[in-house]
């Protein structure tokens, strides 16, 4: 069995009276793509927020690379190699695409206050090269000098992934990266995610686009109403009666 990079046990998150996540346990093995699916409001984003430190869980434990990281701050988790994207587009809107990635390289370019003030300005060739690699990987190089807010929607979503990659993640959490994309954009995103896998990245993916999920995931956990109702390989999960009921029982959910 491969090493588990992320182990979530008995995670519970309450918002006042509402139990958004109710004793969920799952783990993410090193390498490959794990899916986290479920209808709207199931608690997927809330789980992401707890895992990445944006929310303090009410109960449960989160281990990252064997370390207990429950209640760590987001920036501390980033330093440990945990990166995420957000469900709603989240960029540095007024900065250019290149500046966005530069900014996200924060951890890779340590520079103290005194170094900044007391030594002449210097370039960071390694950093520059890494930024270029990331831009090339996500096919954003041609947009490098445009303001992030001026990009078409599909490319904004790719830029978000670029920012997460700049963190040099050991685990990348993607929250509905294809949301709002047209089929063509979603197809290209699928290819991008496949490529990330080939580069050896470990990904935890929340997504409603079932073609994407079934196409890229090695293993899937299904959440409904804050509880885990099923898990398994994509083909297994797709035939699980409970999952079929959740998805087909609700008219209209395009998931």
């Amino acid at each position: 069995m491969p090493e588990q990079i992320l182990q979530v046990s008995d995670l519970t998150i309450r918002f006042g009276g509402l139990v958004a996540v109710d004793g969920v346990s799952f783990s993410v093995p090193q390498g490959g793509i794990t899916g986290l699916i479920g209808p709207n409001g199931a608690g997927k984003t809330t789980i992401f927020n707890a895992v990445t430190g944006f929310l303090a869980p009410t109960g449960g434990r989160i281990l990252f690379a064997g370390q207990d990281v429950t209640r760590r701050k987001p920036h501390e988790l980033a330093a440990l190699g945990l990166a995420r994207t957000f469900q709603h587009t989240s960029l540095f809107p007024d900065l250019t695409v290149r500046q966005n990635v530069w900014t996200a390289m924060h951890l890779a370019l340590p520079e103290t206050f005194w170094q900044v003030l007391a030594t002449p300005p210097r370039r960071h060739p390694d950093g520059e090269q890494r930024v270029q690699e990331i831009l090339d990987l996500l096919e954003l190089a041609e947009r490098a000098d445009q303001a992030a807010s001026s990009l078409p929607y599909g490319e904004q979503r790719k830029l978000e992934i670029a920012l997460a990659l700049a963190v040099k993640p050991r685990l990348l959490l993607l929250d509905e990266p294809a949301a709002g994309m047209n089929p063509e954009e979603a197809q290209r995103l699928t290819e991008t995610i496949q490529q990330l896998r080939r580069l050896g990245l470990t990904i935890l993916l929340v997504e409603h686009n079932m073609r994407l999920v079934m196409g890229v995931c090695d293993y899937i956990h299904v959440i409904e109403h804050g509880r885990k109702i099923a898990e398994g390989a994509p083909s297994q999960v797709a035939h699980d009666p409970k999952v079929i009921e959740v998805y087909l029982g609700r008219r209209g959910t395009n998931a």
Binding site: A78, P93, Q99, T103
Partner: peptide, 19 residues
């Protein structure tokens, strides 16, 4: 850049490792 990142998008700044 960290200063500006905080102004532009606080959550994103944290998530890329800015204290």
């Amino acid at each position: 850049r960290a200063f500006v990142a905080i102004r532009q998008n606080f959550d994103l700044a944290e998530s890329v490792g800015i204290d």
